[in-house]
Design a protein around this nucleic acid. Structure first.
Lengths: 350, 350
DNA sequence: CCGGAACGTGAGAGCGCTCTCACCACGAGA
DNA sequence: TCTCGTGGTGAGAGCGCTCTCACGTTCCGG
């Protein structure tokens, strides 16, 4: 054991070595590695044996250099910490993306720019072609990144319907329909004075969920007074404030649809402090079906989004737009599901 | 505008082009780009102007090919979905890692192997030298990955003290001390029949937190009966079952230290259902200081870990071990902090 | 006035791979 | 028998970069 040598340089076999061992040319080994059909069966076997024996793994850098593909895609998350850290949405989404990428043998490069400076560096990095495509996870409609990348012709898929800017591939959950389902559920259980705590008005999710709430009321010809609408910001604190306002302005309300579970849980607390029983006096439905929906008291009815599937679909879309650049933008909108729990159980008092 | 050409191939400038424009050799441009001191000030300026003008960005693949560095590190998360999705621990940790990497201009490649097969592919990928180092985030002591990577001489840092296997760099929070602080806090407020709901006994965090609990009791010479110790698994359901068992076996308990917030919130629910007031009849302290600690009723006292800092420290450690391979393994243990809230407010009844 | 260090710069090889093109053997069709 | 595919293989160029080495200048001490 010559332990003295300065680090045995975990020498990884090259194409050349495999070729020599197999007694063929580099080109042939390359064909085998890349699954070209123009190799006879026995040569292929020989080469495969040599590859196994040497433990050969292609050098990605060398390959990239000539193919001009990095076989990696970037996931860019530009999101204020609050949302990122209070909600398992991102881990689940990333998990879905990761699973879909690994099937395609693509690498996931994760970028979480901290500030504006960092974001500019990110744009440069992405525009330099270091990745084959970009998945952009940013729930704020006013993010400049999509436009910047689109003009630089970087294949791109964004999460959530963009409010403005260039046409771009996107995947979204049907927020409007989800909110409509939640509200209809409240109507069906007999509620008539249904309030809502909205998300931020500058986020598509906020806008769409409010629209869905209004749709459901309109569908059923239920009173839709503006005093029943309170603005929140998806956070616990925002939900608390909104619920307090609603209780003050409309003490007669008998249900609340909240655009996020965090706000719904906050509303639960405020209602209980005010002596209202949930669901008997006031029914509550949240949105996101996050884990706190099952740990709150009472457990929280909520709208579930197919998060992992959204991740997978983004990868599909991106793979397509990498292959055929400049094709017509596509959009995928996935349906949601209402999960009824204790906070809206039973029937409303007449 | 010759819009007809088949995709203008977002031609990115090469070193060669910069050299031609600046009227110098490739080598000189390379020196400027890499910040070598052996370039005269005016040549440097000229080259920098040319770089700006052409919008030159080095081709990472070409560079990697010759330097044998990828300038990217892998973050491998092998964790069952439950924990991953119920706790903002991972987003925060990844954020910390990401920030520290971006300062060093390293890329973050995220790997989340799904199953055993996927994990083997991951090992091969990492061992092939596609990344310069690996950060391993896996809280189970029995993970085979560290050993596999260590034998393959891949620079490696793991999260959490490993229970077995080869010596390896790691970063951990001081779980034992954190648990000791939490338990001491209960003792100081006057509790004497203090139960604990532990984490899984096969995770270091579970083991250490239990040890810290015992330390504190021993320090204060407080009764430490085994009937006060119930096994949990960090989850809500596990916490519920454990709390029920404790209440049955030791109805006289006056405080519970839970090894996770999720279990603490579950305990809160069980206690309240059983008619115990928190904190008056039973005080509760959790661990992790996760967002639910502030949204539960009552709000939950908890032990906070410096999660982002742990991510940063892992990057420091890894950078070190990439630079000097084979150095003595280091370990960094960060201190925790008790955040006192309503669930352990006031003083215990005598 | 000369030898040689010190510094700045350029030439050129080569990293490991893909891919085009040329080549060879063989069999089919004329 | 000769041509003409046709399927399988190899030779070789070249992707964009780094880095060694050689070379030219300048400047110092002897």
């Amino acid at each position: 054991m010559a332990q003295l040598e300065p680090s045995p340089a975990k020498s990884i076999a090259t194409l050349d070595e495999v070729a020599r061992v197999a007694g063929v040319s580099r080109a042939t080994v390359s064909r085998v590695v890349n699954g070209s059909p123009k190799v006879s069966a026995d040569v292929r076997r020989t080469v495969e044996r040599a590859i196994d024996r040497l433990g050969y793994v292609p050098n990605r850098a060398a390959r990239s250099l000539v193919t001009r593909r990095s076989d990696s895609i970037a996931v860019v998350i530009t999101e204020p910490s609050s949302r990122l850290f209070s909600d398992p949405f991102f881990p689940r989404l990333v998990r879905g993306i990761s699973a879909a990428l690994s099937v395609r043998d693509l690498q996931l490069v994760l970028l979480m720019p901290d500030d504006a400076d960092d974001e500019q560096r990110t744009v440069r990095y992405l525009a330099a072609g270091h990745v084959d495509g970009v998945i952009l996870v940013s729930l704020h409609g006013d993010d400049p990144l999509p436009d910047q990348l689109a003009t630089r012709r970087v294949p791109l898929v964004v999460l959530g319907r963009p409010t403005h800017g260039v046409d771009v591939d996107y995947v979204d959950a049907d927020n409007r329909d989800g909110a409509r389902r939640a509200t209809r559920h409240l109507i069906e259980r007999g509620n008539r004075r249904i309030a809502t705590i909205t998300g931020p008005r500058d986020m598509v999710a906020g806008i769409d969920r409010l629209a869905g709430y209004r749709d459901a009321l309109a569908d059923a010809a239920v009173d839709a007074d503006e005093s029943l609408v309170a603005s929140g910001d998806f956070t616990h604190a925002g939900g608390e404030a909104a619920m307090e306002r609603l209780l003050r302005d409309r003490p007669d309300l008998d249900a609340v649809f909240c655009a996020s579970d965090l706000m719904a849980v906050a509303a639960l607390g405020v209602l209980q402090n005010a002596g209202r029983r949930v669901p008997d006096d006031v029914a509550v439905v949240g949105y996101d079906d996050s884990p706190i929906a099952t740990t709150s008291r009472p457990t929280l009815s909520s709208v579930r989004q197919p998060i992992e599937e959204m991740g997978r679909e983004m990868v599909h879309l991106l793979a397509g737009s990498i292959e055929q650049a400049g094709r017509v933008p596509r959009r995928i909108v996935l349906t949601t599901e209402l999960v009824a729990r204790a906070s809206s159980a039973g029937r409303a008092m007449p």
